[in-house]
Design a protein around this nucleic acid. Structure first.
Lengths: 400, 400
DNA sequence: ATATTTAGTCCACAACGTAGACTAATTCGG
DNA sequence: CCGAATTAGTCTACGTTGTGGACTAAATAT
């Protein structure tokens, strides 16, 4: 578990610390880096020098002026050297994003398609084509793509890169990671988990929140102290199958009265008598609501109530600081947010000072793909030395 | 958040690593320590030397023989130097334990008393007397008590050492930590959380499990990868208020249909028409069950079902590796274990390969006090250098 | 008794961070 | 406009820690 710390590990950690501070502050001079990290100016200078050599940070010509004394040269993360690929394979679309180390999105490719109609290998083939095209474009502009993350709608074995099961695609035990074969390391992960991380790094995310991903199924990603909580087997966050009514309607999962039966996407389409959502999508529902359709409004109330009930269980168990509603709940928020908060509040009022605030995701369907890319970038920040030989082996004379 | 690593931090970590390995393996030679830690023999020798000087480990005269070559001298954690105090303040008893660094229990003091009848400050006074007596005895035998942990039945503000609320005692915002005033640092924590840690370090605990503490209220402690999961505000694990039936019986907490209404201690006493449990205790219930009393058996079935329902929500959200039933559920296990596992299994079967196994706690009511002491000992193992000046400042010439 | 094997120590050295002197580049005050 | 003050960044000698391999110690096998 714990590892011995040697000089190289010490250096790696301090390098990571400096890079992380630069990234979170946007840009920073060596002097202020010394202050925030607690390292000496000398050490910071050496570390920054190495990061500059590796191309992970650049000096901005701009100097912080106004005060007395010699102005410092600020460094910021370079977005032109390292990038990561974020992929999402979902029921009704494929998405590819290229994100650089400065967290700027460099490329967006999205393809709407009903993947329930195709074989897994064909879908993976489609995604592979998109990803390779993105990879080629990124590398054409001089970016080094250091890895890829893939979001899939269902629990995953992260070690092997296999989809454990994706009920809404009808897939079981599909080794997506291996099948994609992109030539860069790839990490496969649950869509809700990655959407949570996307929200953390690219959206409204605080360091502690529960992200609720309303798609056809309902998932959740729990971020605690800036890190994903995955559970012992990596199956945590199955909010969709939390009990709302123990003897309620039969759920696909075998149990009864799961949240998904009340607040899943299909529950809304059922309410308006429309069973072919891919023709109209969630926008049709929103349109109905805007016109004040009673049945749809009732469906919202019921879904909001059920979501509130399930979330109150979740809050009692897991105590998130904030709830962030994403997926279909984002456009539906004006009609369900109130009920959700009310139901939650009613059940939690006495046990804790106040129920966690309920907020809306700002990222739309991009969240998971961005989180997937972000996760890869995070490994770079966590150990910049692993990326660049130059950072570890400086006896190697510089090539000329 | 992350901290700069300097030479002293490097040393502190390696020291901790060595001590931890010695503790988990029982006893180990320097050579095998070098192997398991990945440090060189030289470094291990130096670190072990310092731990010996500090009295945290001792050389066993015994040498590992049988094989060829010079036999190594094994070192093991010394139980004679450092100890911690584990306290529990619960509704119907007070408990004090002294545990040494080798995790041997050196002293047990328990006092049965209905604390609902007394003022908080009186109860704290009682506990203080017990604790000071234990402290004196321990220090009489040469043990240095480095800190205390206190388990209380309800959510806690760990920072300030205040009880947030203890519904079953009727307490609110009681600063127990300060009021105890033992002269050693004290950490206050939820009873269920500490019982979980007790189970981890002194009982059946694996590294990942959900401990269910059935007392008058129902709490849970989640251990993930050997560490407690506390949630953003430290209120995680309120299993007793997870929804079983959203419109069920009114709960003390303001909500309806919480688990506590079905499977709390009072539910059992209600079933047998006995509202004064402190006269008979849980043993009376067990006796009824052994005689085959129908009403009590029915109460078990209902409680087991409700527990199964709530646990299935918990498992979906948090994915523990194992469920450990403690508190009153341990003696009741023969009558509820089956129903719990069945209900859980029925709700989880399709979503995951198998439902987590349900096990029984072996520690009885000692769990929380032991966990409280263990938590203090863990801080010593995590940073042995902090304890002993000699480990950090070796230029100081040895006194003579 | 001697060779072999394994444990533990010793010593020269390498890696890294530190402290403080030193140089560089600004603003402030006259 | 020039020197004092101030802040940024570099340079050098040094301290702390871990490493690697030689060396000593203590056992078993032959």
């Amino acid at each position: 578990m714990a590892q011995a710390v040697r000089h190289d590990a010490m250096r790696a950690r301090n390098l990571s610390l400096v890079l992380r501070e630069v990234r979170t502050h946007g840009s920073l001079t060596r002097a202020s880096l010394a202050e925030v990290t607690g390292l000496t100016k000398t050490t910071v200078s050496k570390l920054v020098g190495d990061l500059l050599d590796a191309g992970l940070v650049v000096e901005t010509g701009a100097v912080r002026a106004g005060e007395r004394g010699r102005p410092g040269v600020e460094v910021r993360v370079s977005g032109d050297r390292v990038a990561a690929l974020g992929l999402e394979l979902n029921v009704d679309y494929l998405a590819v994003r290229v994100v650089d180390l400065a967290r700027r999105v460099r490329l967006r490719l999205t393809q709407t398609v009903d993947n329930r109609l195709s074989e897994p290998l064909d879908v993976i083939g489609d995604l592979r084509r998109l990803a390779l095209s993105a990879l080629a474009q990124a590398e054409g502009t001089g970016l080094r793509v250091v890895g890829a993350g893939l979001a899939v709608p269902g629990p995953v074995d992260v070690e092997s890169g296999e989809i454990h099961s994706a009920p809404n695609l009808g897939w079981r035990n599909v080794p997506v990671g291996a099948a994609l074969d992109l030539g860069v390391p790839i990490r496969v992960e649950n869509e809700a988990n990655l959407a949570a991380l996307g929200e953390l790094w690219f959206g409204v995310g605080r360091a502690d929140f529960l992200y609720v991903s309303g798609e056809i199924g309902i998932g959740a990603g729990l971020v605690v102290n800036g890190a994903l909580f995955r559970g012992a087997r990596g199956f945590a966050g199955e909010l969709g199958h939390v009990v709302v009514t123990p003897e309620g309607p039969q759920c696909r999962c075998g149990a009864r009265g799961c949240l998904e039966q009340y607040a899943g996407q299909d529950a809304f389409f059922d309410a308006v008598g429309d069973r072919s959502p891919y023709a109209h999508g969630i926008d049709a529902i929103v349109a109905q609501l805007e016109h004040g359709d009673a049945a749809t409004l009732a469906a919202c109330d019921k879904a909001g109530w059920a979501l509130g009930v399930a979330l109150s269980s979740a809050i009692n168990l897991v105590d998130p600081h904030t709830i962030v509603l994403g997926g279909i709940y984002a456009p539906l928020f004006p009609w369900i947010g109130g009920v959700v908060a009310e139901t939650m509040g009613g059940r939690l009022a006495q046990l804790r000072a106040q129920a966690p605030p309920v907020e809306v995701s700002q990222l739309g369907s991009e969240a998971a793909a961005l989180g997937a890319a972000g996760q890869v970038l995070e490994t770079v920040v966590a150990d910049p030395a692993a990326l660049s030989e130059r950072l570890t082996d400086r006896r190697d004379p510089a090539p000329r």
